[in-house]
Design a protein around this nucleic acid. Structure first.
Length: 1033
RNA sequence: GGGCGAUUGGCUCAGUUGGUUAGAGCGCUGCUUUCACACGGCAGAGGUCACUGGUUCGAAUCCAGUAUCGCCCA
């Protein structure tokens, strides 16, 4: 092979595709049940089909691929199960929003079937894109097994699970205050709500007291940020012991005062004073109100003219506002709890679309902002409106629709968590499931420990429809009769029915769950006036089954037997509770076994400003953009670099100017711009936000990160080192190698390979990905390329040495290719192909190489090759090379000049360095004239003593001398040595150190000091000599 | 309010159980382009390891507190 056979750069844009096809054709990533091998399996955290993947997914999947490729090479039957998630609310929201924007239609305009059809086509489009992204990244998933959380296989698992839980009475229906998205008209989970602070008002109202006794106030004042909710008020609360409550607050403030800094003190003191004043002016009235409440006084709720009680509850804060608080149990989470404690009626004032309902006929049909305005105006007219203050208010916004969330009382299906949660806690507590890093255990256990029931219904059309048919009856007997009829339709493996009384106790619900989809029992149930539930299940319900549903459960498949429990789950920390915990409890419920042995939590990628990456912010980076600019290997190598044990990593984001390829930093300002002017070439480019025709005229910039540039450079470096080896393999013949007889550099290489193999293997197996990368990066670049390849050059040119040298260097390359393959699969596979052409049989074992690197056996670390003495000796050689280079640089000696060098050293160093002396020519441009204990300095000498090993390097400067430069080098060196001597002396003068530190540490310091003093004297002598020479010239 | 984490050269980050002169990449300075690689090579400058206290013969590392920032949960 020559320089024309192999291009000077690895052309990933043409090679990657071809390599991927070869892998695919050979079925390398397909796993089958194989009793001859041990299984290793990973299920992908299914990316949701809402949008394309960004670098966070890139990281997640790169790490999984590193694990799966390593295990595959280690001889495991390695299955990486791929697939995507239907992401119920997120996907429906995106499609609905587009429907509104592009066609001005709502989901009701096109109906359930129409909407679901559109979502499916969205899903098809994005699933294709996502899988394409993963494939271009080189992810070696078993694509033939690709699943989707809504496909028939997963649906069967969902149905089986739901039926089972229903039968075990772990599923029930209840009214709960939910986060209601009035745009999507569904409940959303807490995780889908974000709180924003907005400017609003704090309105004071007066509610009349009914029949006040003499001396009692005629009005009670309350305040609210949401006036319209007063239509649903069912009480006003006052604190049961206002005096004690005020005392407690005062005590807290006193404690705060003691701990406060001087700056804060005045502020805290002011609060204390205000509280004392308040106590004086308001306490008697609050006590009076408390007594009125105890006496059962009623208030007249204005506008709706409803009598509501004055109650005592600790939720009322005597230190705030009027000390009284209105209670709207159906529209506020705190009030809901008060309502439950006080057994208050819960009055829902909203229609599902967020307009006021018939509870308040005068306001019916008004939107919330309209109703707010009207209520305030009407109260004003009635003379019941007090002050209106400006105030910052926290407003919950739906992540999905970006509209305001309303607390809303709705019927929801719940999964009872008590025992299920406990089982999942036990699995982690007793380490059947191990979480890495271990700090994440706490969050998992704390969250499950709350054992909050899981609301699983979503008022959506996209998802697994809840398989329950229900009807309401006035008497229990009627309900029971229907249950009996339903049960008589089929066996209890097919149908399950239950009666649940309504909260009001005046009606009875019948719920019937069917085991099978499209069951012939459905029309029979409908004949009994039972109606199928319109809701669908929370997406996490199906994701929770992922490790077993993808393997075919509830069918008893061979795959399930062989690959379940899976080995490792690799995910990010934000879904430890939502997903990981639920997989554990569902796995235990459905199979009685944990879903995976290990959970590895990788860091979260933030942008350069410390913000989470997201497409909607404009700071999301598409892995494809990075691949196109830097290549898939560079993407993976760079992502591996950031996979440390930390929890967040920053990834600065840049635009790549399409005109001049300059990388332009993304700022908070320019990331929302539609066009940007390149600071380099001054031309304009557009961004993802460009919409107008004028903006779109400008070419669009890819969004990338310079983080990958270094990785691209590494890939290139490695490619070229391989290219060099390949170009020097002419006439390659495998030959037997007697390790003991190899020259130092070869034994050094073998020793280092053994160490690096062990380190890389160990790091990957313990999820220390960044460490694996850096070990291999440092070794490949700074040892293999910088030293071994350089030394090999003269040997490969020497006919007598060529064959042996070829054999050793090929063995080194072969090992490196294997170790690097999980991280950079494409470039290594490409080189492997070339290597197979010219050296199909190679390595110390002289075995034929596998056709594809992807399925080659993982290298074993041969500890018999580890040789500490050889490594130490080689290090001396390296240090001498560096010393010569330093002298050359300080004298500005041109690279093409060869300098005469002599080395004064011990006999043992001489024995090592003598056979390697010719290598100094290539590595340091040095002609080594003499080596040994008796070797003396040159007449015009530049000396450098290497600390620790006592080798004196002498360079003959006769032809080159620059006295000033040399003096300045020596003086700088002397300065450093003097500083170090002083440090050591003071340390050793410290009696405490000498007597208390371990003897070996003290001894080390002593000998180091002796060494330093000798060097100081030597440098001082050199300076003196040089000065004398300079003055005599 | 609670939990978790971060703070190390201009930037992004390593730093294993405390122990020579705290490392890397990018950027910067100087030299370098026939001889695998300029996406390269060689040399160099640049850090009181956020702050305060403590433990210790010895602290970037252990402990306590403070500040700033981030993420998660209420």
């Amino acid at each position: 092979m020559n320089e024309n056979t192999i291009p000077i750069r690895f052309d990933h844009s043409t090679a990657a595709d071809e390599i991927a096809q070869r892998w695919d054709k050979a079925g390398c990533s397909h796993a089958e049940v194989n009793p001859n091998k041990k299984p290793y399996s990973i299920v992908i955290p299914p990316p949701n089909v809402t949008g394309a993947l960004h670098l966070g997914h890139g990281l997640n999947n790169t790490l999984q691929d590193i694990l799966i490729r390593t295990k595959r090479m280690q001889g495991f039957e390695a299955l990486w199960m791929p697939g995507t998630d239907h992401a119920g609310i997120a996907t429906q929201a995106v499609v609905e929003r587009r429907l509104k924007e592009q066609e001005n239609l709502s989901r009701h305009d096109i109906g359930r079937e129409g909407l679901v059809e559109r979502i499916w086509s969205w899903k098809d489009q994005y699933e294709k894109r996502i899988i394409g992204q993963l494939q271009r990244m080189g992810c070696s998933c078993d694509w033939r097994r690709t699943r989707f959380t809504l496909d028939p296989t997963c649906a069967a698992a969902v149905r089986a699970t739901f039926f089972d839980l229903f039968q075990k009475q772990l599923i029930y229906r209840g009214k709960r205050l939910v986060n209601w998205d009035t745009f999507l008209q569904t409940a959303v989970s807490n995780d889908e709500v974000e709180n924003v602070t907005k400017k609003g008002h704090f309105y004071h109202f007066r509610y009349p007291v009914i029949d006040p006794k003499p001396g009692e106030p005629e009005f009670v004042e309350i305040a609210t940020t949401r006036p319209e909710t007063m239509l649903g008020d069912t009480a006003v609360a006052v604190h049961p012991d206002p005096s004690a409550a005020l005392d407690r607050v005062a005590n807290e403030l006193q404690e705060k005062l003691v701990a406060a800094s001087a700056k804060e003190k005045t502020d805290v003191q002011a609060q204390i004073d205000a509280l004392a004043k308040r106590r004086e002016s308001m306490l008697p009235k609050l006590i009076q109100l408390r007594d009125m409440a105890a006496d059962g006084r009623q208030l007249m709720l204005p506008l709706v003219n409803r009598e509501i009680p004055l109650v005592t509850d600790e939720w009322a804060k005597p230190e705030l506002g009027s000390g009284c608080v209105k209670i709207t149990p159906a529209h506020d989470p705190n009030d809901y709890e008060v309502g439950q404690r006080q057994e208050l009626p819960m009055i829902n004032i909203l229609n599902p679309d967020g307009t006021i309902n018939s509870v308040a006929p005068a306001y019916e049909g008004l939107t919330i902002p309209q109703a707010r305005k009207q209520v305030v105006a009407d109260l004003d007219e009635a003379g019941l409106l007090g002050d209106i203050e400006d105030r910052d208010i926290e407003m919950p916004l739906s992540d999905r629709s970006k509209t305001a969330i309303e607390p809303y009382l709705a019927d929801q299906w719940f999964v009872k968590m008590d025992e299920l949660a406990q089982s999942a806690m036990d699995a982690v507590s007793d380490e059947r499931v191990k979480i890495f890093p271990t700090r994440y255990r706490k969050g998992y256990l704390d969250w499950l420990g709350e054992k909050r029931d899981w609301p699983v219904s979503r008022q959506l059309w996209w998802g697994h429809r809840i398989p329950i048919w229900s009807a309401t009856f006035e008497t229990e007997a009627e309900a029971n009769a229907i249950v009996d009829k339903a049960k008589s339709l089929a066996g209890d493996d097919q149908i399950s029915a239950a009666v649940q009384p309504n909260a009001d106790g005046e009606s009875f619900n019948v719920f019937v769950c069917l085991r099978n989809e499209d069951s012939p029992l459905e029309p029979k149930l409908e004949a009994l006036r039972l109606v199928r539930d319109a809701d669908v299940l929370d997406t996490w319900f199906s994701s929770a089954l992922w490790p077993h549903s993808t393997l075919g459960w509830p069918q008893k498949s061979a795959e399930l037997d062989y690959f379940y429990p899976t080995s490792t789950l690799c995910t990010s920390r934000d879904i430890i509770t939502l997903w990981v915990a639920r997989m554990v409890l569902m796995g235990l419920n459905n199979l009685g076994e944990i879903p995976f042995d290990q959970v590895y939590i990788h860091p979260t990628i933030l942008d350069g400003h410390g913000e989470r990456m997201s497409k909607s912010k404009g700071n999301g980076v598409d892995p494809i953009d990075v691949i196109e600019k830097f290549g898939p290997d560079a993407l993976r190598f760079g992502l591996t670099e950031i996979a440390t044990e930390t929890q967040d990593v920053r990834m600065p984001v840049q635009y790549e100017c399409p005109h001049c390829e300059k990388l332009v930093d993304q700022t908070k300002k320019n990331r929302t711009a539609t066009t940007i002017d390149c600071p380099e070439c001054k031309k304009t480019f557009s961004t993802q936000w460009a919409e107008s025709e004028a903006d779109k005229q400008h070419p669009k910039a890819a969004v990338v990160s310079e983080k990958f540039e270094n990785s691209r450079n590494f890939v290139n470096k490695f490619w070229n080192a391989s290219r060099f080896v390949l170009m020097n393999l002419e006439g390659f013949t495998p030959q037997a190698i007697d390790v003991a007889k190899l020259p130092v550099e070869d034994r050094w290489l073998l020793s280092r390979l053994a160490t690096v193999t062990r380190q890389v293997t160990d790091a990957i197996e313990h999820f220390r990905f960044a460490e694996a990368r850096s070990v291999i990066y440092d070794f490949a670049w700074n040892e293999f390329c910088s030293f071994y390849v350089e030394i090999a050059k003269p040997r490969l040119a020497d006919e007598k040495e060529r064959s042996l040298s070829q054999n050793v260097i090929v063995h080194g390359l072969d090992t490196l290719l294997k170790l690097l393959h999980p991280i950079t699969p494409f470039v290594t596979e490409s080189i492997w192909g070339f290597l197979n052409e010219i050296a199909p049989t190679r390595g110390l074992d002289r075995k034929p190489a596998s056709e594809l690197l992807m399925v080659a056996p993982w290298p074993e670390s041969d500890s018999s090759h580890n040789d500490a003495a050889i490594e130490r000796q080689f290090s001396e050689f390296q240090q001498v090379v560096v010393a010569i280079r330093q002298i050359r640089a300080s004298q500005s000696i041109k690279p093409q000049e060869t300098v005469p060098v002599s080395l004064t050293c011990s006999e043992s160093s001489q024995a090592l360095l003598a056979p390697m002396s010719t290598y100094f020519a290539g590595l340091a441009g040095a002609d080594v004239l003499a080596i040994g204990p008796e070797v003396e300095a040159f007449e015009t000498d530049a000396p450098l003593t290497i600390p620790g090993i006592g080798i004196e390097v002498h360079v003959d400067l006769e032809k080159f001398i620059d006295v000033e430069a040399e003096l300045s080098r020596l003086e700088k060196l002397l300065g450093q040595i003097i500083k170090q001597v002083a440090g050591k002396e003071s340390k050793l003068a410290n009696e405490n150190f000498v007597s208390r530190a371990p003897a070996d540490v003290v001894e080390k310091e002593r000998s180091s000091l002796t060494d330093l003093i000798a060097r100081r004297e030597s440098v001082e002598a050199d300076i003196k000599k040089l000065r004398e020479k300079a003055s005599s010239d």
